[in-house]
C-alpha cells in the first residue's frame, strides 16, 4: 500500500473549558489538550492497515505550533511521519479553508492510497471536513466507518446509516472518516515517545510551502462567522435523594414512573 494520511486535530478537553457569561468568551487557558478522541481511532485504523498491507502512516494537522508535542504522541503510537501545517494566516479558519489547506498539503505529500480522518472534532463537532477534503481531491468518500479493510485495489468498510449500517466497497484512493471508538486505540510507546521528543524532527509547512494566497486561508477564506456565544445552562433539577431499603426504593420508583404517564 502507498501512503496512508491521517488528518489529526488537537482539541481542548471540553470539561475544562470555561464560558465567561459576562464577557461571552471562552476561556481555554485551563483546558488540557489532547489528540481528538476519534482521530486516535483513525490513527489506530491506519496502523493496523499498515501492519497488514505495508505503506507509510503520515499524520497531518493544521494548527498552531503547540500541536507539535501532541503529534509526537501520535508518532509514539507508531506513525512514520507527521506534518504540521502552521501559519499565522491559517488562523480562524472554518471548515472550508481548513479542508483547502489540508487537501493542498495532501497533494504535496502525494502517492497516497487512503486519507483517514475522525468522524468529527470534539470542539467544533462538525464532521464536515472529510467530505470537503474529498471534494478538493476529487476522491470518493465514505463517512462514519466502524470497520475498514483492504480488498485488492479496493476498500471494504462498514458505515453507520439511519437505523443500522451498510457494507460498502470503494476504490482507492479514497477519503474515509472513522467513527469514535471504532477500535481500541493503542497507547503511545514510551521508548518511541523518547525518540520522538529527542531525535525526530517534525515537518512544518506554512502558506509559502503550500503556495496558498492569504485570502483563501484562515479567517479571510472562511464563509461562516461566529456572531456570538450563548451559554446553555442546564435546567435546575430538584436533586432529591430517595433513601431506604430496596423495597422502599423500588416502590417509590414504580410510583414515580406511574405518576408520569
Amino acid at each position: 500500500m502507498k501512503n496512508i494520511i491521517v488528518c489529526t486535530k488537537i482539541v481542548p478537553k471540553s470539561e475544562n473549558i470555561i464560558f465567561d457569561t459576562a464577557t461571552k468568551r471562552l476561556d481555554r487557558s485551563k483546558a488540557e489538550n489532547q489528540i481528538n478522541e476519534t482521530d486516535k481511532n483513525a490513527i489506530e485504523t491506519a496502523l493496523r492497515l499498515r501492519e497488514e498491507n505495508g505503506g507509510k502512516v503520515i499524520l497531518l494537522s493544521m494548527g498552531p505550533p503547540f500541536f507539535e508535542s501532541y503529534l509526537k504522541l501520535g508518532m509514539a503510537m507508531g506513525a512514520d511521519d507527521a506534518i504540521l501545517l502552521s501559519d499565522r494566516s491559517f488562523g480562524g479558519a472554518d471548515t472550508f479553508p481548513t479542508a483547502l489547506v489540508l487537501a493542498t498539503a495532501i497533494k504535496k505529500i502525494g502517492d497516497y492510497d487512503l486519507i483517514l480522518a475522525g468522524e468529527e472534532s470534539s470542539d467544533a463537532g462538525l464532521g464536515q471536513l472529510p467530505g470537503q477534503i474529498a471534494e478538493f481531491l476529487d476522491l470518493p468518500q465514505v463517512l462514519f466507518v466502524s470497520s475498514l479493510e483492504v480488498a485488492g485495489d479496493k476498500l471494504m468498510g462498514k458505515r453507520t446509516i439511519r437505523g443500522g449500517h451498510e457494507t460498502v466497497e470503494v476504490e482507492m484512493p479514497a477519503v474515509i472518516s472513522i467513527e469514535m471508538h471504532a477500535n481500541q486505540a493503542r497507547f503511545p510507546d514510551f521508548r518511541r515517545k523518547r525518540w520522538a521528543d529527542s531525535d525526530y524532527k517534525l515537518t512544518i509547512w506554512g502558506s509559502k510551502d503550500l503556495e496558498l494566497a492569504e485570502e483563501v486561508t484562515g479567517l479571510k477564506g472562511s464563509f461562516t462567522i461566529v456572531r456570538g456565544l450563548v451559554d446553555i445552562t442546564p435546567p435546575k433539577r430538584k436533586k432529591i435523594f430517595i433513601r431506604g431499603d430496596s423495597k422502599e426504593i423500588t416502590s417509590k420508583l414504580v410510583e414515580l414512573m406511574r405518576e408520569r404517564k
Binding site: G125, F223, G228, L229, I232
Partner: peptide, 15 residues
C-alpha cells in the same frame, strides 16, 4: 451547540 453542548454558537454565512 459546541463543546459537548455547553455553549451555543450563533453562526451566520454573510457573503
Amino acid at each position: 451547540p459546541a463543546y459537548g453542548g455547553k455553549i451555543l454558537a450563533e453562526i451566520v454565512c454573510e457573503k
